[in-house]
Structure formats: structure tokens, C-alpha cells
Design a protein around this nucleic acid. Structure first.
Length: 587
RNA sequence: UGGGGUGUAGCCAAGUGGUAAGGCAGCGGGUUUUGAUCCCGCCAUUCCCAGGUUCGAAUCCUGGCACCCCAGCCA
């Protein structure tokens, strides 16, 4: 028997995985039937056994852009389905016509795909279930489980009670089934203005759980819906719609965030009543809650993100500094990084603040493996090699990846005048500095070892050129190269070959770990240096970078050709994330 | 102060009665033509607190404490 491999770095399990494993072991969902599309019990009963062992769903409301918090939920739901031979539905929870728009639907589809997930034929809209939901509501009324309330919103609030006092029954709570049916039909036909009536579930006005104090389930809203137009003027509330959507779609595990915990008793109450009425078969979907993501140095609330965009603190929803997935994509973050991140942070019910450093580490991790190395001089100053013949040039060979020879090499033009990084020279070096300073030797990466001889300064004392001499027998790869022991290793690009490009140096949008903590205005915590636009001198191969393609600028970080502003032959680069820099930290 | 939740290292997190995994951060060292990567080592005598049960408790019991969520015709 072969020796056992060391245990692979396996992610820790989580409570939801345990639940799924237990349900599968108990064959809890094995006898479910699936009609091939959402439907009521009788419809599904006519179909074959459900080929999906479990069904989950990601149910965004199409009223904004998805952000990193959604990525956690997407990876959880789609990941679970993938892992256990199930299906994950992409469902738009568009039950409120007010702020839902097609452009959000499009961007959500785009970004879930980008994250690497596939819903197959299971793309659904809650609004396509409005007829079924309406039938459910009528059945509830017929069975005495719902009534039309005609109190004003203020009256309803007053009668709802408080956290410590029970509510009071509405004067309309005892209306007859016939009257309720009539009123509800007239609500639907458009006879009443917004707010005149509301359909309420009849549960318990004295419940200690406020969500059970006869929650409204249908309201009148004379508005255009992005999908159903003006077909309806009454719309179901989330509380009512969501369990039905899950049941119609044969969802087994309905995962949501912690703030919906108090909603679960109603979720179960409703589905049990509808099961009694013959709409849905057991086993019914079950709701499970996990804690939502909080990220340091970031805000994720829709209100705040909206404010950042509308007040122009950033350049739109897909600004590379935004925590939206569209922004992260433009920034150069990768789907692989997000999936690793989701796995790494786990799923639990405790309130947590994840350090953005974890996400950044996932990004570096992935990019380190796949990004080809290139040279970019971001803050150029001229290096003149005085003993290198004027007019002479040669080529140096550089690997595209130090750990992956399979990725090949590329050539760099070497000449007498090079651009180097301004911070790679110091007239009077600080302690521990081992780059260029008079008398010190460094290697010009993939080229020669040089010894610094001095510099030229302008009237203000600013360095305008650095001078050095090279050692002809020190060329990288040559027999004598090893005789030169230098600590410093400096990147460069020949002045005559360099390609000048715009580069955006992005940093964290907020300068503090918890923007807007307490009563403080979060806008005051914006990092004023979160975006710096520079002109950089790049190695010529970079000119052909495809929009959206990432590489490492050696010794700097990972950069991506902006997918919006890059033109063929004229890329614009965004800094995705810097390399770790223990020297900068030491200073 | 009604109901629902959660407390394991600086930040996450596994652990489900048998003697505290792992990751991030941090610290120290090695390799290195990226001050990168990679590798090695260190980093909780203790799991919110106090009692109790048990040969044995982060896990079970009792009592506290802290924090989060809920009173939209939003989701």
C-alpha cells in the first residue's frame, strides 16, 4: 500500500454542508419529482424523479449592482449545488415594481457568469409566478387564513403593538370569506388607489414574534413592472412571495442571511397552509440562515454605495475602487480569487468582520500563479551607463514566469540609456537600503551588474539622471555572472524602446478599517489617495495587452488592462493589488 | 425590557464528552536575478464569565454578562 498523502489543504466544513450531508444521508429529498420547470404539486407529480439531488437558489432583487457580499452567497449556493450534484437557480426576486430595472437584471446575469457559475435552464423571475401567487392568496382567504385590511398604514402600525406589548386585532379581521374575496378581487381589478387596502395573513396579533402579527402579503401598487408591465396593480410582499417561489422551484435548501431568521416561522406557516390546500407537496423547502459578510476598509450598504456614485466620489458603479463585482472585475480581481475567498472565510452564524487583506491575499495568490511577468517603470528617471558605447544595443532574455518555464521567455532591448525607478536611487542611502547609490552595485535585472557613479540634479536638487558603469562580463546567464554578488536587483526599460501608457494606481477607497463607525459620516473616511493616474514607461510587449488581461509588473504588483478604457494597441492599466513589500513595511 | 440569534488567538474558523485543526495578520530563519514567490519555525495550559455533572467538559446542566437582528403597504 502506498504511503498516505499528507492531507490536502481542505477547507473546513460548515454547518450548512453538515445539514445537506445529513439530508442526503437520510434521503430526505430523494422522492421529489420535477416537472422540468417550476410549478405546483400536481404539475411536479407528473414529472420524473428530480435529477437534482438538492436545489438551491440565488435570489437577488434587480434593483442594484451586486457586491462582494453577494459573491459569498453566490459561491455558497452555486458551490453547494455543484458539490452535491444539485442545481442552483438564478432567480430574480422582482416583486416590487418600484425600483427594479432591466439593466440590473443584465448586469447580475453578467457577473454571476463571470464568477464561473452556470444555472443551466434554471433562470427564473418571481414576477412570472404572479398568477400562482394570486391563486395561493385566494386559497388562503377561502380557508380563513387571510383577510383584507382597510386600516391606513398609520393605524396598522399603531395596532401592531411594540416589542414588549402585543398588537390589537384590526377591526376588519373578522370580515367574512365572501367579503374578503370580493374586496381582494376588486383590489386586483384596479378599483382602489394605492394604500386603500392590503391583504394580510391571519396568524396571531399577540405573537412575541412581530413578523407573525398578521403580516401584509399583498399591497396595491399602480406601477409599471419591468417584466409584467401593467398586468397587475397588486403585488405580493417578500414575506409571502419568497416561500412560494422556493416551493414552486422545488428548492430544498433556501439559504439567506441572519436578518431573515425571524421570518422563518412565517415561511413555515405559509407553506404548511398551502400544503394543506394542495399547492405544494412535502418535503417542503427549508430556510437556513448564515451571517452576512462585513469587510474592513469597505462599505457594502446599498445606500452608501449609491451615495458614492451619485455624489461623484467614484467614477461609477464599476469604478475599480468600488466593492461591486463589476468594480472588482475592472480592478483585476479574478473569479478564482473570489471563490477561494468564499471558501476561506467560511459560513457561520456569528457576526464577523473579515479583513480585506484576506481577499487581497486570495487575489495575489491566484495572480501569482497565472500572471506573466512584465516590466513597468512607474516613476521614471534616466540611468546612463557611461561606459556602454553610444548607439550600441543588445537583447536580454527574460522568463515570463520565474516558477513556470513552460510560459516561455521574451526579449528586452538593452541600451546605454534606460528608465529606472526613481526610488531605486538615493544620493544618501538610508539604513538597510541596497539599491543604487554612489559606489554601490546592483544588477539590472536580466542584464548587467552596474556600479553607481553619481547623479545629475537640477536647480531645485531634484535628480534628473543617474550615472553608472557596467561590467561587461557580468551579463545574466554568462559564465562570469556569478562572481558578482549584489543584493539589489533593479528593473529597467530602454529609453528608445519604452512604451508610454496611462496607469491608474488604485488603493483602498477608505483609509480606516471601519468607515463611518459610530455616528461619523463615512465620506470623511475616504482615502484621498485612492486613485493616482500616472504616465509610466513600459516594456514594449505591453503595448499589445488585451483588455481585461492581467500581468505582474515586476517588483510592483499586479496590473490589468482596463476593460473599458483600453484600445487595441493602447492599453490603460489598473493596479489590481501591490506585491507584498517587506522593505516598505520595515521603513 | 418581548422574541430570535451569536460568543474559540489581532481577524476569520474547525471542533458535536477523550485532552484546542487550518487560513489571514504578526514575529524569526532559509532559498531566491522580484526587498515577490516558495520553504522552515514561533504565535490559545485554554474556548465570554461563574458554578455544577463527569475519571475526563470548548462540547452536557444551571445562572449570569456582552453583542447582533425584529415594530416597511422594502427585500
Amino acid at each position: 500500500m502506498a504511503p498516505k498523502d499528507p492531507a490536502p489543504a481542505q477547507p473546513a466544513s460548515n454547518f450548512i454542508r453538515h445539514i445537506v450531508e445529513a439530508d442526503l444521508a437520510a434521503a430526505k429529498y430523494a422522492s421529489r419529482r420535477w416537472a422540468g420547470e417550476p410549478g405546483e404539486a400536481t404539475r411536479h407529480a407528473s414529472g420524473p424523479l428530480d435529477p437534482a439531488r438538492i436545489r438551491t437558489r440565488f435570489p437577488p432583487e434587480p434593483n442594484g449592482y451586486l457586491h462582494i457580499g453577494h459573491a459569498k452567497s453566490i459561491c455558497l449556493n452555486f458551490g453547494l449545488a455543484r458539490e452535491f450534484g444539485g442545481a442552483c437557480h438564478l432567480r430574480f426576486d422582482d416583486t416590487n415594481p418600484a425600483r427594479e430595472e432591466q439593466q440590473y437584471v443584465d448586469s447580475i446575469i453578467d457577473v454571476v457568469k463571470w464568477l464561473g457559475f452556470d444555472w443551466g435552464p434554471n433562470l427564473y423571475f418571481a414576477s412570472n409566478y404572479f398568477e400562482a401567487m394570486h391563486r395561493c392568496a385566494v386559497a388562503l382567504i377561502e380557508r380563513g387564513h387571510a383577510y383584507v385590511d382597510s386600516q391606513s398604514a398609520e393605524e396598522m402600525r399603531a395596532n401592531r403593538g411594540t416589542l414588549t406589548e402585543p398588537g390589537k386585532d384590526s377591526p376588519h379581521r373578522a370580515r367574512s370569506v365572501a367579503e374578503n374575496l370580493d374586496l381582494f378581487a376588486r383590489m386586483r381589478s384596479g378599483e382602489f388607489p394605492d394604500g386603500a387596502h392590503v391583504l394580510r395573513a391571519k396568524v396571531d396579533m399577540a405573537s412575541p414574534n412581530i413578523n407573525l402579527r398578521d403580516p401584509p402579503i399583498y399591497r396595491i401598487r399602480h406601477a409599471q413592472h419591468h417584466n409584467t408591465g401593467d398586468t397587475w396593480c397588486i403585488y405580493p410582499m417578500y414575506t409571502f412571495a419568497h416561500p412560494i417561489e422556493d416551493a414552486l422551484e422545488n428548492i430544498t435548501h433556501s439559504l439567506c442571511t441572519l436578518e431573515f431568521e425571524d421570518q422563518r416561522p412565517f415561511y413555515n406557516w405559509l407553506l404548511e397552509r398551502l400544503h394543506e390546500a394542495g399547492f405544494f407537496a412535502q418535503p417542503l423547502p427549508q430556510q437556513y440562515e448564515f451571517s452576512r459578510l462585513n469587510l474592513s476598509y469597505t462599505v457594502l450598504s446599498k445606500r452608501k454605495l449609491m451615495q458614492l456614485v451619485e455624489e461623484g466620489h467614484v467614477d461609477g458603479w464599476d469604478d475599480p475602487r468600488m466593492p461591486t463585482l463589476a468594480g472588482a472585475r475592472r480592478r483585476g480581481f479574478t473569479p478564482e480569487a473570489f471563490r477561494a475567498f468564499a471558501e476561506r472565510i467560511g459560513v457561520s452564524k456569528s457576526d464577523s468582520w473579515i479583513d480585506v487583506g484576506v481577499l487581497e491575499d486570495c487575489v495575489r495568490n491566484h495572480l501569482n500563479e497565472v500572471a506573466q511577468r512584465r516590466i513597468g517603470v512607474l516613476d521614471p528617471v534616466k540611468l546612463i551607463i557611461d561606459n556602454y558605447p553610444e548607439g550600441q544595443t543588445e537583447t536580454c532574455v527574460a522568463p515570463n514566469h520565474p516558477q513556470r518555464p513552460d510560459l516561455g521567455t521574451r526579449e528586452l532591448l538593452f541600451a546605454r540609456e534606460l528608465w529606472i525607478e526613481r526610488e531605486d536611487f538615493m544620493l544618501t542611502p538610508s539604513k538597510g537600503y541596497f539599491r543604487l547609490y554612489p559606489g554601490n552595485r546592483v544588477r539590472l535585472r536580466y542584464g548587467y551588474v552596474v556600479e553607481c557613479t553619481g547623479c545629475e540634479q537640477d536647480a531645485e536638487g531634484r535628480v534628473v539622471a543617474v550615472h553608472c558603469n557596467y561590467f561587461p562580463d557580468s551579463h545574466s546567464g554568462s559564465a562570469g555572472a556569478d562572481q558578482y554578488k549584489v543584493k539589489g536587483n533593479v528593473h529597467w526599460v530602454a529609453v528608445q524602446a519604452a512604451c508610454e501608457c496611462e496607469v491608474r494606481l488604485y488603493d483602498r477607497l477608505f483609509g480606516v478599517s471601519n468607515p463611518g463607525a459610530g455616528e461619523r459620516d463615512f465620506l470623511l473616511d475616504i482615502n484621498p489617495d485612492s486613485k493616482r493616474v500616472i504616465r509610466a514607461q513600459l516594456e514594449p510587449a505591453l503595448r499589445q495587452t488585451q483588455a481585461g488581461s492581467s500581468c505582474q509588473f515586476e517588483r510592483h504588483g499586479y496590473f490589468v488592462a482596463d476593460r473599458v478604457d483600453s484600445k487595441p494597441g493602447a492599453p490603460v492599466f489598473n493596479r489590481t493589488v501591490t506585491l507584498r513589500d517587506s522593505w516598505a513595511k520595515a521603513r
